[in-house]
Nucleic acid binder design. Structure first.
Lengths: 163, 163
DNA sequence: ACCTACCGGTTGACGTGTCAATGATGCTAA
DNA sequence: TTAGCATCATTGACACGTCAACCGGTAGGT
């Protein structure tokens, strides 16, 4: 940065004005990017990114079916979130739920034909949007840097004691 | 130079597996970062980042008051979003709304004493959290790179024809 | 056998966001 | 004057997310 960080890092309590500006740019731009991707997916395919994540996981599963808890773990969602979302997706006919024969109290989530088709139609435009809005917007070096930044931020997020 | 013809721009249509991996890391990590900041702010100050944005704007405004539409423009929100949010903040006593004398049909948004206090209590922990989770997680070079990445992504988002 | 504790999943309440429709009020043009 | 029309703000319907409570059932310890 500029001359604003002469002292050792640990001493300073608050971000400098320049750090804060970058922070805001960064967090607001990534949020806008997510939001743009979301609306692209919506208008291209009438799916949300949540729908897409669920359909992707089920598409890759054997028999295009998964237990609810396994699905939640796979896409990193809370169970209640998934339950709410599956309810909405079921209303729209994208998935189906049925009692699981093998596991008592377990719910099996199944892809319907409509779900398969919706996912098939969504994939290509979605990947193209990712390329246009992310990959093509950055230089190859910036893409690598983005990966490293994500890894560094993730490490901090996962660090113990960082509530 | 904005050559958006699909055929012309690089032959490749879709991101590579590695690009996709970085994309997912990047977008999920930034979302997790936002979410962590949000919950830190919530537990430190019982405010959401939306509350914080509104309180910040009002704090910096002359007389700690703004017209609703000016406030919406300032923080980049749709008016309906702001209206809903102000309703909730008003219920909690953080702000007050009153008819604007100068502009017909205009609503003036005022900071209450409770709002001033809540913002005052929130600021320091919030900035500290930004430093811990973002600034301190990255090297100075990575912070610069993050700013450049944000600028490049923003430029693409703002580019015409990129729906 | 009984009590308890967990496990898998659902539900309800509520905050948050978008979209479309609705007042309310001035401005402008026939 | 009046018929539109833009502007400012609100409202309602709905999608989405979290949190906490709940419920049915299985497993463990006594």
């Amino acid at each position: 940065m500029t001359e604003t960080t002469p002292a050792r890092r640990g001493g300073r309590k608050l971000p400098t004005a320049e750090e804060l500006r970058i922070w805001r740019d960064f967090i607001e731009t990534t949020a806008a990017l997510s939001s743009r991707l979301e609306s692209r997916l919506q208008s291209d395919s009438a799916l949300s990114t949540g729908d897409y994540a669920v359909l992707l996981a089920l598409s890759e599963a054997p028999d295009q079916a998964m237990r609810s808890s396994a699905l939640a773990a796979h896409i990193g969602w809370e169970r209640s979130r998934l339950s709410h979302h599956l309810g909405r997706m079921e209303r729209r006919g994208l998935i189906r739920r049925q009692e699981c024969a093998t596991v008592p109290r377990g719910a099996e989530v199944l892809l319907t034909a409509a779900g398969v088709e919706a996912f098939g139609n969504a994939t290509f435009p979605h990947l193209r949007a990712i390329r246009e809005l992310f990959v093509d917007a950055l230089t190859p070096e910036q893409i690598v840097a983005a990966g490293e930044i994500a890894a560094a931020l993730r490490a901090r997020l996962d660090a113990p004691g960082e509530g």
